[in-house]
Amino acid sequence: MKAIRPLATAMALAASAISAISAMTTIPAAHAATEPVKNIVIVSGSFVDGSGWRVIHDILTQKGYKVTVAAQPHTSLDDDVAATREILDQQVGPVVLVGHSSGGAVISAAGERAKVKALVYVSALLPDVGESLAQVIGSKPAPSNSVRPTQDGHLFVDPARFHDDVGADLPENRTNYMAISQVPATVATFNTQIWAAAWHHKPSYAILSTEDRALSPDLQRWMYQRAGAKVTEVKASHLAYISQPDQVAKVIDDAANAR
């Protein structure tokens, strides 16, 4: 009987230690699930760079967010997704991923990362798996089509039409400069079938620009409804993030704070 008592005591101590270790390992997991989102990663669409997001960057930074704009090579959809994933890998903690225009396809693919907690689409395209940007755009053409091809397989917006079709609610001196400093996209990017659509299983939010002449508002509404996104309609052009930064920033902030 004397030998049994020390053995029982040792077993009880071991069980207590295992219980303590188990508790220590479950606490961080529970904490991670409620960790607040403080990282915002923004993906620009075709034909523009990231400079137009400056005001939204400033609004969100003042709210305590770390904002990063993922520069896009605009050479292929694979390259754009890879560039976005590289930025995502640099973030510490959960992320809200924001995409404008064709950047919607990029965040849909790159958004499969576990750290991406929500997706925000701004006047954006949301192709499903097996669909291309060109295919989706062709299903509901825009009110105006100013996109022109080049002989080497690139695309650009006719500079003479940039203001009226892309940013009619912005001063002409601004859109005129954007028109002559475009980042050309490639035909291949628009013809590539997307291989992932994170909006199927991640919370999605969307800005519908009702005065958009570059991307059909009806198409936006249909894509957003298909994705089950929470939609905010904004009276704005395709460049809603420049002309209505407060409203767009609010949607991003709401996505980050949703529980």
Rank of each mutant, 00 (worst) to 15 (best):
Y224N: 11
A83C: 07
A236Q: 03
Y121I: 03
T68G: 00
A82W: 03
E211A: 15
R259M: 11
Q220F: 08
T61S: 14
R113G: 02
T84S: 08
V120M: 03
I194R: 03
M178R: 07
R174K: 14
K140A: 12
G52S: 07
L126D: 04
A206S: 09
T186Q: 00
S51C: 03
G52I: 03
T84Y: 03
I180F: 03
M1P: 09
G103I: 01
A142G: 05
Q193C: 00
S101R: 01
R148M: 15
T192I: 07
N191L: 15
H200V: 13
I137G: 08
A30Q: 15
Q225V: 13
S76D: 11
A32C: 04
L77T: 05
V187A: 10
E172A: 11
K38C: 04
M24W: 11
N145F: 15
T186P: 03
S204T: 09
R259H: 15
V251F: 04
D58L: 10
T232P: 05
R259W: 04
L208F: 06
V92M: 08
E35R: 12
D246W: 06
H74P: 07
A12I: 08
I42R: 10
Q182N: 13
V81R: 06
A114W: 00
G45C: 10
D80H: 05
V92F: 01
D78E: 13
G104Y: 00
K202G: 04
R5D: 13
T175A: 08
A258E: 11
A179G: 10
E172Q: 12
Q247F: 07
P94M: 04
A214G: 14
H100A: 03
E131W: 12
Q244A: 14
V157P: 00
G93D: 08
T210I: 01
A82D: 10
P28C: 11
L13N: 10
A185Y: 03
T186D: 02
L126Q: 06
K63S: 12
A114E: 15
E112M: 13
A33Y: 06
D254L: 07
S76A: 01
E172K: 15
G153A: 07
A82T: 05
A197H: 01
V251A: 00
V55Q: 12
P149I: 11
E211Y: 10
M24S: 14
D152C: 06
A142I: 12
A134V: 09
V231Q: 00
V187S: 06
A198W: 08
V41G: 00
R174D: 05
V183E: 02
G99R: 00
S144E: 14
N173A: 12
P127E: 01
T68D: 07
R161K: 14
E211K: 15
A110G: 02
G50R: 06
L60K: 02
S204E: 02
K140W: 06
P6H: 10
Y65L: 05
Q247M: 00
A179T: 09
A20N: 05
T26Y: 13
D165S: 09
F162V: 01
L208H: 09
V251D: 04
N191F: 12
P203T: 05
I56R: 08
P127H: 08
L7I: 13
V248P: 03
A17V: 14
P143L: 01
D128P: 04
A15T: 12
D78R: 13
K2Q: 15
R213T: 07
A71V: 13
L155I: 07
A33N: 05
I18A: 13
A105K: 09
T232A: 13
